[in-house]
Amino acid sequence: MDWRQLWDIASAPDNVPIVGMIPLLAFFIYLAWKQARANDRLIGELETNPAMAKTHHRKTWPFRPGWQKEVHVWPFLLRIEFLAAIIVTIILMVWSITLYAPLEEPSNPNLTMNPAKAPWYFLGLQEMLVYFDPWIAGVVMPTLIIIGLMVIPYIDTNPLGGGYYTWKQRKFSIGTFLFGFIVLWVSMIIIGTFIRGPGWQWFWPGQTWDHNRLIYEVNRDLPDIFGITSNLAKGIFGAIVVGGYFAIGGFVLHALFRRYNPNDYRRMSLLQYSIMQFFLLTMVALPIKMLLRLMFHIKYVWITPWFNV
């Protein structure tokens, strides 16, 4: 174990936010989970006891009939905002006094940084460059992420779970979001920060960054494995595989979704349903392609003269 280097990476000023974000995220997931569990327990009780459901105020926090339902913003909300501002300012002050913003040598187009890393919040996209060509990783994927986030309210037809933490009532949507945000986005940032070294090669945490390391990986394309050589056949084969992924994957998703999420399935219109299918399958395609590359050294699936996937 190269502890020294591990420390160097973790304590690099620009990486400190990531190191700080991990426990922060863990804390907030715990906080949300705790409240979701309490709410779910309450929902369970109310469902089995209709008489209680009629009178209960339906929150996990205590409320007595004599209490006012509303409080004045001044001072009850403003004092929280004021305190939050002070606390953030103190954190920021201490952070700024103790840790200096990085400043490297003057920019020099003739001297490439190795590894040249994007700002930490874009490392997920940079990591995707390993598995996809830049037009997918750098342009199409970010666009799809933004559009995908924007369509969420219009394809989530579940009327339950608005305004409170719950898991039981929204398993599918919360599960999907956790997969996209934590498993894909955050963990790829962590990989990009802690695991990718010189030449964007994979170095396990604690493994010394060797600037001279060469890896003789023979990356193959999927058509090669099937002995397809002509360009036309490669293009057709790739289209079939990618199309097949969306067709079969869509069918599997359909079979699962209508079984395990019948209410949402019933409520969704054809447009909502197909948009959800498209985004979900595209999102799942990312880890599939990662596994294909990391385990089977497959570079491209679909090869055409104009673009490769």
Binding site: L103, E104, M113, A116, K117, P134, G138, V139
Partner: peptide, 26 residues
């Protein structure tokens, strides 16, 4: 500095791969 220069170089290099709008894109 080097940090910003190369981060922006990496970032904007992706723009040249924009489908239809970048000279290296599909």
């Amino acid at each position: 500095d080097q940090l910003g220069f190369w981060a922006v170089t990496v970032g904007t290099n992706m723009a040249r791969a924009t489908p239809g709008l970048g000279h290296e894109g599909p």
